[in-house]
Simulated scan of single mutants.
Amino acid sequence: MSLLEIQGLKIGYGRGRRAKEVVHGVDLAVDTGETLGLVGESGSGKTTIGRAVLGLIPPLAGSVTVAGRPVTGSMSKVERRAHAQAVQVVFQDPYTSLSPSLTIADTLSEPLKAQGVGRAEATARVNDLLDRVRLPKDAGSRLPREFSGGQRQRVAIARALALRPKLIVCDEPVSALDLTTQAVILDLLIEIQRETGVGYLFITHDLSVVRHISHRVAVMYRGDIVEQGETRSVTGNPMHDYTKRLLLASPVADPREQRQRRAAWLESRATFCGGVAAGT
């Protein structure tokens, strides 16, 4: 059994006749120590799947299982507490996801205390977390506004690791960072995975990011998985036109190549939206 198993997942919003299904029978899996990149443009349904994995949205149909435990909208308080220990999240914007009035030490110790960890052990765990994300121990006494975007994302990663989860949902965790800082944060996530065996469901719109960190990739378009497989295969020889379009949208450092890719993307957009690729 995989660490994360999603089978026939359907998710919708609204009730009655106004209910709208936004995820249509999706199957996904993530193993221990593995990263699955879930890729798609805004509105594709990828973040909705992430919220379902976190237990924030009940499915219309299908199932979500983490470490052998079902994730449902009717979980008891005890079950939700166990789920919070097993699954954590890193959001896109670390500044808005961190309380501006709490020191970093208080931010990192908060989930530990909520789980009944004593003060002395919490302090030791906070120091270990800061070391793991390569921040100095005196960072614990500072506030989020005193850090750069990359440093704040390190804090967010440390907070996600606080309860030693088996799975972390990474929801666009580097999209707000410059390319150099993105690479550093991705390398940090890879190193943490090697050390801890944590699995990642890595949600992003950028296939170049997926190529850097993911073992496998699933491409999502309008609520459906249109292509899925090993990262090297999907990004090196994409079969679906939507995947090819996403590859053209990925940023590169060379300005000339970026302009060429932008022109090709605009051309593919006209073709794709015109319906040529819609049925492939």
Rank of each mutant, 00 (worst) to 15 (best):
L135T: 05
P173Y: 04
V133N: 07
T103F: 03
A183S: 14
R211D: 12
T72I: 08
V276E: 15
P144C: 05
A124T: 08
K166R: 15
S76G: 14
R245E: 06
V155A: 09
I213L: 10
T204F: 02
R269A: 11
T107E: 12
A124Y: 00
G236Q: 04
M1R: 09
I168D: 06
G14R: 08
R142F: 00
S233R: 11
L177Q: 09
G40T: 10
A52N: 09
P70C: 09
K10R: 15
Q258L: 06
L247P: 00
Y95S: 06
T32S: 14
Q151N: 13
L167S: 06
G16W: 08
T96I: 06
D241R: 14
E172M: 04
L129S: 08
E121N: 04
L186K: 03
E5Y: 00
R51G: 03
V39D: 02
L179A: 14
I213Y: 03
G116R: 09
M1G: 04
R232Q: 09
V26E: 06
G140D: 01
I213M: 04
V89G: 03
R152G: 10
D241S: 10
T231A: 03
V133H: 06
L98Y: 10
F91H: 04
R262Q: 14
A105E: 15
L9A: 12
Q182V: 02
L163A: 07
D171V: 02
S74D: 15
H205V: 01
G118P: 15
R232I: 02
M75F: 02
P238W: 06
A82H: 12
T235K: 01
I192A: 00
K10Y: 14
E172Y: 08
